[in-house]
Amino acid sequence: ELKPWIEKTVKRVLGFSEPTVVTAALNCVGKGMDKKKAADHLKPFLDDSTLRFVDKLFEAVEEGRSSR
């Protein structure tokens, strides 16, 4: 259920769609990584945008959990 949101956010942050980043982000969430681990995992794909993306990712995960 997070996938469409992650795809949109990747496109907004990077300026283009990147399926590799979407898959990696879903893996981070699925494995229950904390922000630091997720950022380390995604840094090779996102460079300077990593922290901004990870912040948005974790906000969305929290919103998703609290709306259930």
Rank of each mutant, 00 (worst) to 15 (best):
L42Q: 07
N27V: 05
K31N: 11
R12Q: 15
V61Y: 12
F45G: 06
S49E: 11
T23R: 09
G64T: 14
F45D: 06
V13F: 08
D47Y: 14
A39Q: 12
P44V: 04
V54R: 05
D34N: 09
T20M: 08
L46Q: 04
L2N: 01
I6S: 01
S66L: 12
K36A: 11
C28P: 00
D55W: 01
L57T: 09
E63P: 05
G30N: 15
F53N: 03
L46N: 03
G30F: 11
I6N: 00
S17Y: 12
C28V: 15
A39E: 08
H41G: 03
L14M: 02
G64A: 14
S66E: 12
K56Q: 11
K37G: 12
G64K: 12
L51P: 13
L42D: 02
R52P: 15
L57R: 07
P19Q: 08
D47N: 15
R65E: 13
P44Y: 01
V21G: 00
H41D: 06
T23E: 15
V61S: 07
L26Y: 05
W5V: 15
G30I: 15
E7R: 06
C28M: 00
L51H: 14
L14T: 02
K56G: 09
V13M: 13
K36G: 08
K3V: 03
S49K: 14
K3T: 06
T23W: 03
N27L: 05
K11W: 03
K43T: 07
K37I: 06
K56C: 12
L42N: 01
K43L: 06
T20F: 00
M33A: 03
V22I: 09
R12F: 07
S49Q: 14
V61C: 06
A25R: 01
T9N: 06
E18L: 04
R52I: 13
T9F: 09
G15P: 09
T9D: 01
V10K: 02
L51N: 13
L51V: 12
A60T: 09
K43W: 09
S49P: 01
K35M: 01
L51R: 10
R52N: 14
A60S: 07
A39I: 13
K3F: 02
G30D: 14
V13E: 10
R68A: 14
S66T: 13
M33H: 05
K56R: 08
L26T: 05
D40R: 09
V54L: 01
P19I: 01
F53K: 09
L14R: 01
K37W: 01
F53A: 05
V22S: 02
S67H: 11
V29M: 11
K3H: 03
V22F: 01
D34Y: 01
G64Q: 11
A60W: 09
T20S: 11
G32Y: 06
C28I: 11
R65L: 10
S49Y: 12
F45V: 04
D48S: 11
A38Y: 05
E59Y: 07
E7F: 06
R65D: 11
F45Y: 13
V61T: 13
K56L: 15
L51Y: 15
L42P: 04
G32H: 08
K11H: 07
F53D: 00
L42H: 08
P4I: 15
A24N: 07
E62K: 10
K11D: 01
S67W: 07
R12T: 14
A60F: 15
S67A: 12
K11N: 06
E59K: 06
A38N: 00
W5D: 12
F58S: 03
F16H: 12
F53C: 07
P19C: 06
T20Y: 07
M33D: 01
S66G: 13
G15D: 07
E59H: 06
L57M: 10
F53I: 06
M33E: 03
K56F: 10
K56N: 09
K56M: 15
K3W: 04
P4V: 15
R52H: 14
V13Y: 10
P19F: 00
K37R: 12
P44C: 06
K56A: 14
G32V: 08
V29T: 03
D47W: 08
G64I: 15
F45P: 02
H41C: 10
A24M: 08
E62T: 06
N27G: 04
V13H: 11
E7N: 03
G15M: 01
T50K: 03
D48N: 14
D47C: 12
L14E: 00
P44G: 06
L2D: 02
V29W: 01
L46I: 03
F53W: 00
K43E: 06
S17P: 11
D34F: 05
E62M: 04
K43Q: 08
A38R: 01
K11P: 00
L26A: 06
P4H: 14
T50N: 12
R12P: 00
N27M: 09
N27E: 14
V13Q: 06
L46M: 08
C28W: 04
P4E: 15
L42Y: 00
S49D: 11
L14A: 00
G32C: 04
V54K: 07
A24S: 02
K43N: 01
A39H: 09
V29S: 03
D34R: 02
K11Q: 13
L14W: 00
P4R: 15
F45E: 05
D34A: 05
L46A: 04
V13W: 11
K37H: 07
D47S: 13
T23H: 08
S17N: 07
L2E: 01
V22Q: 00
L46T: 06
D34V: 04
F16A: 11
K8D: 05
K3R: 10
F58W: 10
A25F: 02
V22Y: 04
L14C: 04
K8C: 03
R12A: 15
W5F: 15
F16R: 12
S49H: 14
R68I: 11
I6Q: 00
K43A: 10
T23M: 11
R12M: 13
V13G: 01
K8N: 10
T23S: 10
E7H: 04
E59T: 10
A24C: 08
T9P: 04
S17K: 07
K11C: 07
A24H: 02
S66Q: 09
S17M: 10
G64W: 15
A25P: 00
L51G: 14
D40K: 13
E18H: 14
M33I: 01
D34K: 07
K37L: 08
L57P: 07
D48Q: 07
T50Y: 02
C28S: 02
R52E: 15
V54Q: 04
S49G: 09
D34H: 03
E63G: 10
T50G: 02
G32T: 03
V29D: 01
V22W: 02
L2V: 00
A39C: 12
T50P: 03
V54H: 09
R52F: 15
A38P: 00
N27T: 14
A24D: 00
F45K: 07
T23K: 12
K8P: 00
L51W: 13
H41R: 08
A60Y: 11
